[in-house]
Deep mutational scan, measured.
Amino acid sequence: MTEYKLVVVGAGGVGKSALTIQLIQNHFVDEYDPTIEDSYRKQVVIDGETCLLDILDTAGQEEYSAMRDQYMRTGEGFLCVFAINNTKSFEDIHHYREQIKRVKDSEDVPMVLVGNKCDLPSRTVDTKQAQDLARSYGIPFIETSAKTRQGVDDAFYTLVREIRKHKEKMSKDGKKKKKKSKTKCVIM
């Protein structure tokens, strides 16, 4: 069974824990209790493949930012979460993405942009803004509501699919490099 290491990042209060708990335990946590770091595991079937999701729910508070490099190193894919009623959390996505790329030393890291709290009427981040940002990053965008469960499975499952595509691409690139290195030079 394939294991996928997913990391949920975003500013404090955007609903990272609520999304994760909704996926794992099928219930909505409405009281806000700032996370330092929590880890969850769940076995699911995605596109006919049974897999184990190892999900790291991270601290959004700035005082825990020193811990970010460590979990970013171990993560295979990242859910970059903002709240649709919090423009600052949307603007912060850029910083999370840049930090992930720096730590992973790669421009090509599996990510999904997630606009959470889409059940709320007080939207300050337009869907088109988020779609445009995701398009500019070359990553999928999904709106979710941890409260109603809308888009929750889709967000995590899409990230797994992005990781699969990335692994497939990397193995193809690896095979191309191996083929090239088999060419021999004969000096007579």
Rank of each mutant, 00 (worst) to 15 (best):
L53P: 06
D47P: 07
D33C: 06
D38E: 02
V8K: 02
L19P: 00
Y4S: 12
Y4R: 15
Q25F: 06
Y32K: 02
D33N: 05
Y40R: 00
E3F: 07
D47T: 06
N26Y: 07
E63R: 07
L19Y: 06
G13L: 10
L56H: 10
E49P: 08
E31I: 07
A59H: 04
Y64Q: 14
I36K: 02
Y40D: 00
D33T: 06
D33S: 06
T2M: 14
G13C: 11
G15R: 00
I36P: 01
Q43L: 07
G15W: 00
Y64E: 15
I24C: 08
P34H: 04
H27I: 13
Y64P: 14
P34E: 06
V14R: 05
I55N: 07
F28Q: 03
E49V: 10
T2S: 14
E49Q: 14
I46L: 10
R41E: 03
G12Q: 08
L23V: 10
D38N: 02
E62P: 13
Q25W: 06
Q43C: 09
L19Q: 15
F28K: 02
Y32G: 03
I36W: 06
G48D: 09
D54S: 06
V14D: 12
G12D: 11
V9Q: 04
A59E: 07
Y40A: 01
D47H: 10
Y64L: 10
F28N: 02
S17P: 00
G15V: 00
G12S: 09
L52N: 14
S17F: 00
D57Y: 00
F28Y: 11
I21A: 10
V8E: 02
Q22R: 13
D30R: 12
G12K: 07
V45L: 11
K42C: 09
G10K: 00
S17R: 01
I36S: 03
E63Q: 11
L19K: 13
S39N: 06
N26K: 13
I21N: 06
E62R: 07
D47Q: 08
E62A: 09
V7M: 10
Q22D: 15
G15L: 00
P34D: 02
E37R: 01
G10F: 00
L56M: 14
E63F: 04
G60E: 04
A11L: 15
D38A: 01
I24N: 15
I55A: 08
K5N: 14
V7P: 01
E62D: 13
Y40T: 01
L19E: 14
Q22T: 08
G12W: 06
S39E: 06
T50C: 10
D30N: 10
T58R: 03
V8R: 00
E62K: 08
S39G: 09
